[in-house]
Design a protein around this nucleic acid. Sequence first.
DNA 1: TTCGATGCAAATAGTTTGCATTCTA
DNA 2: TAGAATGCAAACTATTTGCATCGAA
Lengths: 156, 156
Amino acid sequence: MAARTVPTRNAARVATAVGELRAQGSRVTKARVAILEVLSTSEAHQSADDVAKAVGEIAPGVHRATIYRTLDSLVSAGLVAHTHLGHGTAVYQLTIAPHAHLQCQRCGLVIDVPQSNLRAVGKRLLDDFGFTLDPGHSALLGVCASCRQADVLQSV
Amino acid sequence: MAARTVPTRNAARVATAVGELRAQGSRVTKARVAILEVLSTSEAHQSADDVAKAVGEIAPGVHRATIYRTLDSLVSAGLVAHTHLGHGTAVYQLTIAPHAHLQCQRCGLVIDVPQSNLRAVGKRLLDDFGFTLDPGHSALLGVCASCRQADVLQSV
DNA sequence: TTCGATGCAAATAGTTTGCATTCTA
DNA sequence: TAGAATGCAAACTATTTGCATCGAA
C-alpha cells in the first residue's frame, strides 16, 4: 500500500495537552484544540504561518490573530516550545523531549539533535562566562551534508 | 590606559574595506562609506535599524532602502557579517575576528565569545550529522549571569 | 558615457492591538 | 452569568521592489 502523506495526529498527545490546559484554568476552545492537533501531526517544525494554513483545513474560520495569540498562550503555558531559526522565522512544536536544532543555510533543512551534543559547550559557557545555555531555543546555522557535497563538486 | 567609551571610528578599518570594495569593482559611494564608518565605530552589534539611525547622523538623506541594499551587498562582498539573534533581528558587524554570540533572553545582552568554545561541538556535529557548523551566524540563547542571579533571588 | 547605486514610493510580509461579540466553564 | 477567547479590521514594523535619476569610474 502506498504511503499516505496525510499527517497522523497524535490523539494522546493532544489529550494530554488539553488536560493540562484545563488544569491551568484555561479554556478549551475549537481554535486551541485545532492548533494542538496541528502541532501533534508531525515532528516537523511549523511556523505560525504553517500552523495557520493547517488549522484552516481542519477548523475553517479561525483567524490569524487567534493563531498568534494562541501560540503565545500555549508557549506561556509550557505546552509548546518555539525555536528561532535563521532569518527571523520561529517554529513551534509540542513540548516533548527538548532537543537542539541545526539549520542548513542553503536548503533550510532542520535537523533535530539530542541536547546531549551541546552539554559540553553548555558547561563551558557556564564556567567561563556565567551564561546558562538554553540549547533548544535557537538553531545552530551551518551547512548540511548534501549541500556541502554540492559545494565541493561545484568548486572543482 | 583607560578604555574610551566614546565610539571611535576606526579609520584604518574603513579604509581597508573601501579598498576591498574598489578591488571588487564595486563603487564607493557616500552611503557605503557612511555605513562602513558606522559599523567601524564600535564593537557593538547593530541592527539594520540602528545602522540607519546612525547613518542618518553622519550622512543625512541616505534612504532606508539603501541601508538594506547596501548591508546586503557588503555581506555578499564579505566585508560585513550578520548574526541572527533571537526574535528575528539580525545584527551586522565588520568582518574581523569571527566569534560566536551568546544572547540573554531576559535582558538582551549579547556576549561575544571566541569560536574556540564551539570547536568541540562543531567537530561532533560534523562527525555525527555531517553538519558543518557556522558558529558565528546565529546566537546561542540562554540567560546571563546577572539575570540568573536575579532569578535565584526572586525564587526564594 | 555607462551602468551600478540611489531615492522615492508603493507593495509586501509578518505580527500586534482595540473593541465588540461569542462561548466555555 | 462572568470573563476568557475570538473575529474583525486596522495599525504597525520590518523589509523589498520597480522605476526613474544620479553619479563613480
